[in-house]
């Protein structure tokens, strides 16, 4: 456990060294948030029928997405890890006294947490005090808020588990940028980061709800605004845990297979 804590501290420390990077990140997130809101505002202004998500709910969705972006995006890339694989320096990590899956998982998780630690609170606070149409609304009740926190954390664990699969795929493709591009584009769409899932056509929604991506971002954000009521949210959290278990098992299995191949090649 101590090892994981020091990995996290190192990351946070590195992040602080880049003072303007954090500030620039916040400014950028705000800009993106405003564009997205303005586009949806324009769409909503002349909507013919009542959309399945109200504008305030949608705006909260967007601000949460901007604030927790680093926690939920799939394309966050640790070039150190992918370089390890392509350059063959992975031998060093194989000598470490901890399982490589757990070690990398901790590293990726730390990268996300330390990135978010610096960026999320300024965005949340400012967006909470914006003038009326752009404001981040507060959750309907404290229960919804706690459900949101739980589902967001589970979503974070889930997205990290999925990104582990991307790194494992680098063993096969040996092209980190290629692997990331493919996964990231699909993942972004499937998790509702481009268009919130309720606004998509019915048939597509049904497919997306059956995949794990929706639980990484779309689900927690809608739990926050109460768009997903508490009872459904509890069920969803259960499904999140099942997905998490499945992805862990699959990830570890694929990893051990990939490593076995490496040893054979190196032999």
């Amino acid at each position: 456990m101590r090892m994981y804590w020091s990995v996290f501290k190192l990351r946070l420390y590195n992040g602080l060294q880049y003072r303007s990077a954090a500030l620039a990140g916040i400014v950028t997130q705000f800009f993106w948030g405003f564009i997205a809101i303005m586009v949806f505002e324009a769409f909503y202004s002349q909507a013919l029928s009542q959309p399945p998500m109200s504008l305030p709910e949608l705006i909260s969705y967007i601000w949460l997405k901007q604030a927790f972006l680093i926690l939920v995006i799939l394309w966050l890339r640790d070039s150190e890890l992918s370089d390890l694989i392509t350059s063959g320096n992975i031998a060093y990590d194989l000598c470490r006294p901890s399982g490589i899956y757990n070690f990398w998982y901790a590293k990726l998780l730390a990268q996300r947490l330390s990135g978010a630690a610096l960026r999320c609170s300024p965005i949340l606070i400012i967006s909470f005090f914006l003038p009326h149409p752009y404001r981040l609304m507060s959750p309907p009740d404290s229960f919804a808020f706690w459900l949101f926190i739980i589902s967001l954390l589970l979503g974070l664990l889930l997205v990290t588990a999925i990104s582990m699969l991307i790194y494992i795929s680098v063993f096969a493709t040996l092209s980190p940028s290629g692997s990331f591009l493919m996964f990231a584009v699909l993942g972004e769409f499937l998790s509702g980061m481009i268009v919130p899932i309720p606004l998509l056509p019915q048939w597509l929604q049904q497919i997306l709800y059956a995949l794990p991506f929706h639980f990484t971002a779309d689900f927690p954000f809608r739990v926050y605004s109460g768009h997903i009521p508490a009872s459904e949210a509890l069920v969803g959290i259960g499904i999140q845990m099942i997905w998490l278990a499945v992805l862990f098992v699959v990830g570890k299995w694929l990893m051990s297979r990939a490593l076995r191949n490496i040893v054979v090649q190196g032999g």
Partner: peptide, 11 residues
Amino acid sequence: FLFERFGQIRG
């Protein structure tokens, strides 16, 4: 998909 739902955007 957005156009499929909303039809148009400000004309």
